[in-house]
Simulated assay, not measured.
Amino acid sequence: MSVTWYECKVKYRKTHETGEQKVTTDTYLLDAVSYTEAEARINEEMAAYTNEEFRITNIKVANFSEVHPFENSDRWFKSKVSLVALDEESGKERKTNMYLLVQANDIKEAFENTTQVMADTMGDYSIPAITESPILDVFPYFSDEVEEGEAAAAIVSEETEVSEEAEVA
């Protein structure tokens, strides 16, 4: 199943290191099945993040194919990856672009992390561009129901194996 990522811009009063309060607009990324769910989830995440009043100014579908967090990294980078395929009919190379969101501390590390992510790719690819993203944080969807569903499926699978073994005996 494909994940749809939504960029949400939120305007709120933020207290800086100096103790000064300023109204800022920050961008967050989350996955959801619809704009309505994205709005509900960003409301929930921001309520936990700040006690101040906030306003969602924009929600749009992000064009990221994959999101890759890395330990000990504090910034997000948008990596443009061009997959190279050979068109057998015309004999020409055809490039298909995809965008990855990769966490890193600087551009060099973002390039290294993108290369690491693409290491298992069988085809040829190039990385024509990496830019720092305005995204402050990513909120992936975690569901207890999914974990419970997987556990239930494992139990059913075990019961099926046991009943098949009983029939053989």
Results as ranks from 00 to 15, higher is better:
D120I: 07
F54E: 03
S82Y: 06
V10L: 07
E148P: 02
E7Q: 10
Y6S: 07
V168H: 09
R75D: 03
T115K: 14
D26Y: 10
F77M: 00
A151L: 08
K60N: 06
Y35N: 13
V84W: 01
I155M: 02
K92F: 09
V81E: 02
E53D: 15
T25W: 01
G19H: 09
E17C: 06
V3I: 15
V84G: 00
A38W: 01
F54Q: 07
E165F: 04
A152I: 06
A151M: 05
A110V: 00
G123H: 04
E52D: 14
L86G: 04
V138N: 11
V10T: 01
S82P: 03
E17D: 12
A32Y: 10
I107M: 04
Y6K: 00
S90A: 01
E88N: 03
G91D: 11
Y35S: 04
T131C: 06
N51H: 10
D87E: 15
M46F: 05
Y28D: 03
Y28T: 10
Y6L: 02
K11H: 09
K80W: 08
D144H: 10
I130H: 04
L101D: 00
A47Q: 14
V33N: 13
Y49N: 05
D87V: 10
F139K: 07
T131K: 13
S79H: 08
E20M: 10
E20I: 11
A169R: 13
E45W: 07
A151N: 08
A38L: 06
D120M: 09
K11N: 15
I107W: 02
I135A: 03
K60D: 06
K95M: 06
L136R: 15
D31V: 01
A110N: 06
Y6A: 01
E66V: 05
E132F: 00
H68N: 08
V10W: 02
A38M: 01
E93M: 09
F77W: 11
Y35V: 13
A85K: 08
V146T: 14
G149M: 12
Y125Q: 04
A153W: 05
V33F: 10
E147T: 14
D87T: 07
S2K: 14
A166G: 03
N63A: 12
S82N: 12
K9D: 09
E53N: 11
I130T: 03
A153T: 09
R75W: 07
M98F: 05
E147P: 05
E158R: 15
T160E: 14
D106L: 04
A62N: 06
T18L: 11
I107H: 06
Y49V: 00
T114F: 00
E89W: 07
E147N: 13
P140E: 09
T50A: 12
T25C: 08
E164A: 14
A38P: 04
K11A: 10
D106G: 08
V156A: 15
E71V: 14
E17Y: 12
K11W: 05
R13Q: 13
D106E: 11
N97Q: 13
T50K: 05
E148W: 07
A169W: 07
V33A: 08
L136P: 03
N72T: 00
V67C: 01
L83K: 15
A85D: 09
E17L: 06
K80T: 15
D31N: 15
A129K: 15
E45Q: 11
T25A: 02
Y12A: 03
E66P: 02
T131P: 02
D31W: 08
Y141L: 14
E53R: 13
E66K: 11
N113R: 04
D74Y: 13
N97F: 08
E20G: 00
Y99N: 13
N97K: 04
